[in-house]
Each structure stands twice: as structure tokens, then as C-alpha cells.
């Protein structure tokens, strides 16, 4: 915090350099988290505003990006209740964006978007961000066991065969 200082040296430029170099990547992360470009834009802006407030503290810890990605995923989950209601009342028409870009994915993205937010967040952190379950647990403030169970449910819904499933199937066959 910078309380107590009657003057301020401008740290805006350094923060903006971070936004410039990492903002686009953060927006892309927001898109897969939220499943919606507009929500992603809201999410990344909110998170970067919060990062900007804490910049002097966060930048000293070498990982402002990890900080802002954690803010984004937590904010995304906490927005869920409020936004779900709005979405149910005001059904947003699908834009051409999803269909056009994802021809040939067998409907997988549409199914990912339909997952509960927490489950989707776990999948994004695991398969897009390539994070371990322990890291994901720290980011979401839950236990690794919860992460695993959320991932398990999500993968079941999506009918994704995991390496663990493969081992089980092989074992059954040999019986």
C-alpha cells in the first residue's frame, strides 16, 4: 500500500507495459474461462484494474501474471451466481464466432461452455494453462481432492478418455 505518501511517482508506465505485453494473452485466457468474448473483456479489465491497484506490491514478487490469472479465475467463479440469473432471463443469441471457428470439434467446445463454471475453470487451468492439481487448488482456494473430483466430473460429462481411464480399461481387458 502507498498510504501516507503525500506525493506519488507515476508507476503507470510500467504497469501499462505489462498490459501491453501480456494483456492479449490474458484476454485469450479470459475467453476460454468465460466462453464469451464480452465476458472475457469485462473479466480481464476488472482483474487488471485490481492488479493496477496492487502493482507496487505485486511487481516485487516477480509474478504479476500469476496474480492476475488467479484473480481472473476466482472472479469468474464468483460472478457465476449473479450472471447466471441474467443469462437465463436474457438469452444471449449465439454469435457466429463459436460455430465458425470450431467446425470439426465434434461439439466439444459447446459442451465445455455448458459445464458449471467451477468445473470449466478446473479444465482450463489443467489443460489450457497446464497447471498441476496442487497449483489449481491453491489458485481456487480448495483442496487438491476437490480439484480432482471437479475434473473427474467434467471429463465424464465431456466423455473425455483420460490416461487414467486407459489404464483401467487395459486392466479390465486383461482380467
Amino acid at each position: 500500500m502507498r498510504e501516507g505518501r503525500p506525493w506519488d511517482v507515476d508507476d503507470t508506465a510500467e504497469f501499462e507495459e505489462f498490459v501491453r505485453s501480456r494483456g492479449h494473452a490474458l484476454y485469450r485466457y479470459g475467453v476460454v474461462l468465460t466462453g464469451d468474448p464480452d465476458d472475457a473483456a469485462d473479466l480481464v479489465q476488472e482483474a487488471l484494474l485490481r492488479l493496477g491497484d496492487a502493482w507496487s506490491r505485486v511487481r516485487r514478487k516477480d509474478d504479476p501474471e500469476g496474480y492476475v490469472r488467479t484473480i481472473m479465475v476466482r472472479q469468474h467463479i464468483s460472478w457465476w451466481r449473479r450472471r447466471r440469473r441474467e443469462r437465463l432471463v436474457d438469452a444471449v443469441p449465439e454469435t457466429g464466432y463459436q460455430d465458425e471457428r470450431l467446425a470439426g470439434d465434434g461439439g466439444l467446445w459447446a459442451e465445455i461452455r455448458a459445464l458449471p463454471r467451477r468445473q470449466r475453470a478446473v479444465l482450463v487451468l489443467r489443460y489450457y494453462e497446464d497447471r498441476s492439481d496442487e497449483q489449481i487448488a491453491r489458485m481456487l482456494g480448495v483442496t487438491p481432492a476437490t480439484v480432482r473430483s471437479q475434473a473427474f466430473r467434467a471429463l465424464r460429462k465431456l466423455r473425455v478418455l483420460t490416461s487414467r481411464d486407459g489404464v483401467v480399461l487395459t486392466a479390465r481387458r486383461t482380467r
Binding site: R28, Y29, V31, V32, Q98, R101, L102, D105, G106, L108, W109, I112, L123, V124, Y127, Y128, L155, L158, R159, V160, L161, T162, S163
Partner: peptide, 16 residues
């Protein structure tokens, strides 16, 4: 066809 974890990674990156 069966989906794999690699498909999941691929589709998330394509969307992003």
C-alpha cells in the same frame, strides 16, 4: 469417436 485430453487442450487453444 473417443475424445482425449489432447483434444481438450487443442480445442481450448483454438478457441483462445
Amino acid at each position: 469417436s473417443r475424445r482425449t485430453e489432447a483434444d481438450l487442450t487443442e480445442v481450448l487453444h483454438r478457441v483462445a
